[in-house]
Computed example of a mutant assay.
Amino acid sequence: MSRKGVGLAAFDRSRLTSAQYASHGNTLRTSDAAALETQLSVFRSLLQQFAQTHAKDIRSDPSFRAQFARMCTAIGVDPLASSSSSSSGGSGGIGSSLWAQLLGRSVNDFYFELAVRVVEVCGATRGENGGLIGVRELRERLGRGRMEGAPEIADDDVLRAVGTLKPLGSSYSVIRVGNKPYIRSVPKELNTDQSAVLEAVQVLGYVSVSMLMVNLRWTRARAQTAVEDLLGEGMLWVDKQAPEWEYWSPGFMLDVDGATTAGG
Rank of each mutant, 00 (worst) to 15 (best):
L198I: 06
G145L: 13
G205F: 03
N179A: 09
L16F: 11
G93L: 07
A115S: 11
A259V: 13
E152R: 08
S31D: 11
W245P: 06
G149P: 05
D109Q: 04
S82V: 10
G263T: 09
A221P: 03
A124E: 13
D193G: 08
R222F: 00
R117T: 05
I133V: 12
V238I: 15
L204I: 08
L254H: 11
S210Q: 15
F112Q: 05
D12S: 12
V256T: 14
W248N: 09
V238T: 12
L216V: 02
G123L: 10
T164H: 02
K188Q: 13
A100N: 10
N191R: 09
E233W: 00
Y182C: 00
A200K: 14
Y247S: 04
G251D: 10
S208G: 15
G205W: 05
Q52I: 05
E152L: 06
L8T: 07
S82I: 10
R144G: 04
D257I: 11
G131T: 07
K240F: 03
P181Q: 03
D109E: 07
S63D: 15
G5R: 13
G90Q: 10
F252Q: 11
E199W: 01
R160V: 03
Q194R: 07
V77H: 01
A154V: 02
N129W: 02
E199P: 01
I58F: 01
V256R: 15
S83M: 10
A124F: 02
M71Y: 05
L102A: 06
T27A: 14
D255L: 07
R146V: 05
G89E: 08
A242L: 07
L216H: 14
M253F: 02
N179C: 00
L165N: 04
D255N: 15
L190V: 04
K166P: 00
L231N: 04
C72G: 12
S208N: 12
G169L: 03
R160W: 01
Q48T: 08
I175K: 05
W99K: 03
G130Q: 07
Q202F: 02
T17C: 09
R70A: 12
G178D: 06
P167R: 07
A9S: 12
D12W: 08
E199F: 00
A259S: 14
L28I: 13
V214K: 14
R29K: 10
S2Q: 12
L80G: 11
A22I: 15
M1F: 12
G104I: 09
Q241A: 13
T192A: 10
G5E: 11
L80Q: 11
R3H: 11
D61K: 03
F11R: 06
V135C: 06
R176W: 10
L204Y: 10
A19K: 15
A124W: 00
E137T: 14
D255F: 04
G92T: 14
S195Y: 00
L102C: 06
A9R: 12
P62N: 09
A69Y: 02
I183E: 08
R160L: 01
M71N: 07
G93Y: 08
L40R: 15
V203F: 12
Q67S: 15
I58N: 04
E148A: 12
D57P: 00
G95I: 03
N215E: 15
L204T: 11
L230A: 03
G169W: 03
E189I: 10
L236Q: 02
V121K: 04
V256K: 15
S41C: 06
A259K: 13
G163S: 10
S82K: 15
R105N: 11
E148P: 02
V174M: 13
V203I: 14
V77Y: 01
G5D: 10
V197K: 00
R15Q: 14
Q241N: 14
